[in-house]
């Protein structure tokens, strides 16, 4: 009885409440969320960063594995030449499976992080959102107390789609910013670890590689008598020459791979720096920074010229 008299009033007030609530939410949310998504600069920086992580992760992973294969081949040849410091059960000396796996896992994590960050920046929720909106509108239509005309239905639907989408974009930007800032120290230290492993002057991974190469080269060298390589038997001479040629071939391959990895790590370091910059200052790009430095340099040279006068 009570509900029968209350129902029409409730229906009108509910409709009014919905309208007022939606209007209020729209105004507040549009104000709060407007321009809160990732900017074009940020999206471009994330894309560049993701590509750079994929390149470094892939080439470094491949090279760590190849290093082990090379070292096994070099040590096998040194053993054949009679080098007594080569242990037949430790042909992968320095570059064990577990050591390579540790580094390969780091490369995989790097690649995965870049890929997922791109996914976070670009994943499209619009289809799911529209589906949810339709479901919401269908549910609303089942509330008998609420009577909405087509215009009102359209307005509510559009508001949900717009606000949902704006909220997703704001959330996306917030999360990307937090993750990029939070991950930066670990990421930079990993890039540096990889870089130093492929830097011939840094004496990390390459120290083991160089030592192994030199052991084979010396194993061949000490087989050559003071009278020269020609004084060896034909088979011994061939064995020495093959060892020398193998060492040279592997050294060249390694040097080429190192140069590629050093370039990839420099690119990733630059992409990471740019990403941090655009997340903190969405409207500034590295080009702007470069232009700024160019202007400062120009100014500096003008001052120097004037100073000399």
């Amino acid at each position: 009885m009570r509900s029968a008299t209350f129902a029409p009033l409730f229906a009108r007030s509910l409709t009014r409440q919905y309208r007022a609530a939606i209007a209020w939410c729209t105004v507040v949310s549009v104000t709060l969320l407007a321009g809160c998504g990732l900017t074009t600069n940020q999206q471009v920086a994330i894309g560049k960063f993701s590509t750079s992580t994929a390149v470094l992760g892939e080439v470094a992973r491949k090279e760590f594995i190849q290093s082990r294969a090379d070292v096994i081949e070099l040590n096998s040849r040194a053993l054949e030449l009679g080098n007594t410091t080569v242990a037949p059960d430790k042909l992968d000396q320095f570059f064990t499976i577990s050591r390579v796996a540790t580094r390969a896992a780091a490369c995989d994590a790097l690649t995965q992080y870049g890929e997922l960050l791109r996914t976070l920046a670009t994943t499209d929720e619009s289809a799911d959102l529209l589906f949810a909106r339709d479901r919401f509108m269908d549910s609303l239509a089942t509330v008998k107390a609420v009577r909405l005309d087509d215009a009102q239905t359209g307005a509510i639907g559009a508001a949900i789609a717009f606000l949902g989408s704006a909220a997703i974009e704001a959330e996306r930007r917030h999360r990307v910013t937090v993750i990029v800032r939070g991950t930066s120290p670990a990421l930079r230290s990993l890039i540096e670890l990889i870089r130093q492993d492929f830097d011939a002057d840094a004496e990390h991974w390459q120290l083991g590689y160089d030592a192994t190469l030199k052991r084979l080269e010396n194993s061949a060298k000490v087989r050559i008598p003071a009278a020269g390589i020609e004084s060896l038997s034909i088979s011994d001479e061939a064995q020495v020459r093959e060892a020398q040629s193998l060492a040279a071939r592997i050294r060249n391959r390694r040097d080429t791979a190192n140069a590629e990895i050093l370039s990839a790590s420099a690119q990733l370091a630059a992409a990471e720096k740019e990403l941090r910059l655009v997340m903190d200052h969405p409207d500034i790009t590295m080009d702007d920074v470069d232009r700024f430095f160019a202007s400062v340099q120009k100014l500096e040279s003008i001052i120097r010229i004037l100073d000399n006068k």
């Binding site: 994590a109 959330e171 939070g182 230290s189 670890l193």
Partner: peptide, 23 residues
């Protein structure tokens, strides 16, 4: 470093799920 990157990967996965939370 790998441990830290694995945590970061988990954080990004959570963030992707977080976008769905609005839907």
């Amino acid at each position: 470093a790998t441990g830290a990157m694995t945590d970061a990967v988990a954080a990004v996965r959570d963030a992707i799920k977080g976008l769905k939370s609005i839907v």
